[in-house]
Amino acid sequence: MRALHTSDWHVGRTFHGADLLADQEFVLDRLAAVVADESVDVVLVSGDVYDRAVPSAEAVRVATTALGKIREAGAQLVITPGNHDSAARLGAFEEFAAAGGLHLRTRVDRLHEPILLADEHGPVACYGIPYLEPEPARHALGVPEAKGHTGVLTEAMRRIREDLARRPPGTRSVVLAHAFVTGGAGSDSERTIAVGGVEQVPGSVFDGVDYVALGHLHGPQRLAEHLRYSGSPLAYSFSEATHRKSVWLVDFDARGLAEVRRHELPVPRRLATLTGRLGELLEDPAHAEREDDYLSVTLTDTVRPVDAMRKLRDRFPHAVHLDWQPEGGAGSAALRYAAQTKGRSDEQIAHSFLADCRGAEPNDRERVLLRTALETAGKGENP
Rank of each mutant, 00 (worst) to 15 (best):
T273Y: 01
E289T: 10
H287R: 13
P285R: 15
R277F: 00
A272V: 07
L278F: 10
A272C: 08
D292E: 14
T300R: 12
V303L: 02
D301R: 10
L295W: 02
T275N: 04
S296E: 09
H287Y: 11
T273C: 06
E289L: 06
V297F: 06
Y294F: 12
E289P: 02
L282N: 06
E291L: 05
P285K: 15
L281A: 10
L299R: 13
E289W: 04
L278N: 14
A288I: 03
A288D: 11
T275D: 00
E289H: 13
E283R: 15
D293W: 04
E291I: 04
A286W: 10
T273E: 04
T298C: 11
E280N: 13
L295A: 05
R290I: 00
T273R: 15
V297H: 07
T300S: 11
E291F: 04
H287S: 08
S296K: 14
R290M: 03
L278C: 11
V297Y: 03
T300V: 10
D292V: 14
A286P: 09
D293C: 12
G276K: 06
P285Q: 07
D284I: 09
L282Q: 02
Y294K: 07
H287L: 08
V303Q: 02
S296C: 13
V303H: 02
G276E: 01
T298P: 05
S296N: 09
V297S: 04
T275I: 07
D284N: 15
Y294P: 01
G279E: 11
G276I: 03
L281I: 08
T302F: 00
L274W: 04
A272Q: 11
E283Y: 05
D292Y: 08
D284R: 14
L295T: 05
E283V: 10
T302L: 09
E289V: 08
E280S: 14
L274D: 00
L299G: 12
H287T: 05
S296V: 04
A272K: 10
L295P: 02
G279L: 05
L281E: 02
T275W: 00
R290G: 01
E283K: 15
D292M: 12
D292T: 15
T275A: 07
D292S: 15
H287N: 11
E283L: 13
R277N: 01
G276P: 01
T275K: 15
L299T: 13
D301Y: 06
E291Y: 09
V297K: 05
G279D: 13
